[in-house]
Amino acid sequence: MHHQDIAVDVVLDIYQRILRIRRFEEAVGLLFRQGQLPGFVHLYIGEEAVAAGVCAALTDEDTIISTHRGHGHVIAKGGDIKRMMAELFGKATGYCKGKGGSMHIADFDIGMLGAIGIVGGGLPIAVGAGLSAWYSNSNRVSVCFFGDGAANEGSFHESLNLASTLALPVIFVCENNQYGEFTPAQNAMNITDIADRAAGYGIPGLVADGADAFEIYRVTAAAVERARAGAGPTLIEAKTHRRGGHAEGEEAFLAGQTYRDEAETAEAQAKDPLLLLHNYVSENKILPANQLETLDSNITQAVAEAVEAARNSPDPALESLFEDLWL
């Protein structure tokens, strides 16, 4: 892990994005365990360096598409944690006025074109976002986040091929967190690296360390440059780990059974992206310890305020069911 080629303000920017995701997700996990959140939540803890590294390499005009595990992507793209938290509570003040929920947060104003709850469902839409940039001769790049599970969906293959044949400015970011729900990724495919599949579509496929935000930033920046130059899409496979389960409260589904490999759990702990980056920033004296603490407490405070605001927000009015329909 090194940042020689990355400006200090970018390092700090990435650090803040990771920290904001972590504190938000910790709060969400707690709220879920306390029974305060409806529905399911899929936390991004352990994978933060991917969203942060990727989004730090994008402009505000570039767009992203996300997954059921999407909170981190929204925050990394610059989303408002107050509106996110309110959406998780199903409140009228949420990003989607309580009609979307955890798996369907979007912020079109910042190029966050939506989280998609269907595994693999976002890839074709991201191709369309890239197509619109190509069509309009825009510099915009479209990024699609998806997991290892989505790489086994037909939509993955159709989308990579379509983006490749039209040389569209799309970056496919596969977050391989080692499990599709409870099934190890290695049991669901007969290859080690999903990135190898890129060759089948005539595009570059790269493996990157998902715990190293600098490496993610670097490979994304190169893919962005390639896309803007009209050279077409790239597949980036970020090897990552989720610290928690597939979904919070998954014990209920597991009924006493286990699925995590102990060595993988230990690796996930050792390769915690926040821990690694925190150590790096401290050891390299990029920011003094007291400033790091202030940063953390400011973010923690902002998250607490978001929770409070969400809790005190009104439920959506029933009339809103008949709003946001056909124009």
Partner: peptide
């Protein structure tokens, strides 16, 4: 550019239509 032949990929082409539509086309 305005009459685009695509691969036989109904899912991706329909989805690409959605992605283009939400981006103003």
């Amino acid at each position: 550019k305005r009459v685009i032949d695509t691969p036989i990929s109904e899912l991706a082409v329909a989805g690409a239509g959605i992605g283009a539509a939400v981006n103003g086309l």
